[in-house]
Amino acid sequence: MTTGHDTRLDSFNDTGLDPFNTKGGRPEDPDMTATDQRADEPVLDPAAREGAELPTERTVIFDVEELNVYYGDFRAVRDASLKVHKNEITAFIGPSGCGKTTLLRCFNRMNDLIETARVTGSLRYHGVDLYHPKVDSVEVRRQIGMVFQKPNPFPKSIWANVAYGPRVAGLAKKGPAMDDIVENSLRKAALWDEVKDRLDENALGLSGGQQQRLCIARAIATDPDVLLMDEPCSALDPIATTRIEELMHGLKDDYSIVIVTHNMQQAARVSDRTAFFSVEVNPESDTRTGILVEYDSTQKMFSNPADERTENYVTGRFG
């Protein structure tokens, strides 16, 4: 460790906690100070949300500041800053190529899998710099689950799909403990009643909507803190989409959810806060960089956005 690195090390952990150590379990909320007791209050019902401002002092899960994502020399996201709050659903909307999926994939370090990807700026999860060299991306992904655009169940039994995460994390082995995890996860994902009699069957035999709920159950099974959803309904029909949206409302009592969606109505229906991204075309290199235009409560974003571009987008004038 060089001395030049020490300042970075300090910023790795302001809190004296090390959430990605091998002890497992959820990190303590470093921001859980006296002023933050409201985080424990029941979350507002979406219906009761109308007209109500969201509590701004709710615990911050992700604190993104001036984040840039590059693929090689190409800048995919420029200077994004936003805060994701606990037990809320945060939606990222915007036209294609605006960097919303790229940003989402920073939250669990999925971008690490792309060799040329590079991130600058600060992305803090409960105060911890996610891109600090000491942070292990595998530990990050155990706490920050992800559901992908296309349902991607493993070609194994339904049971084995849900048990996969807990098994690689060493939470449980085959047996009653694992059976409990599988049942609870499937119940939370509203899939248990449909599959309880055929847990041994191949997951690929399920319908698309069931497969996606299985993927949600699979992500829940590792007991994550956050669920990242990358256009989870784009491959599903309207009925399956409705079921997933209902499911998300139920899930946010236990998890914080960040969802990327192409579908503005979906963002309006499910989310508490919405971030609108747009595309900035660089005339010199003809590349397209995503920028965060506006981030506010969903209610404000869809009724009275501050930025004209947001208004044009949500009213359907472009995109």
Binding site: V138, R141, G145, F148, N152, P155, G165, V168, A169, A219
Partner: peptide, 12 residues
């Protein structure tokens, strides 16, 4: 999708 699914669940 399979690879990302496994990585997303915290597989090394």
């Amino acid at each position: 999708g399979l690879k990302e699914g496994a990585y997303g669940l915290g597989a090394t």
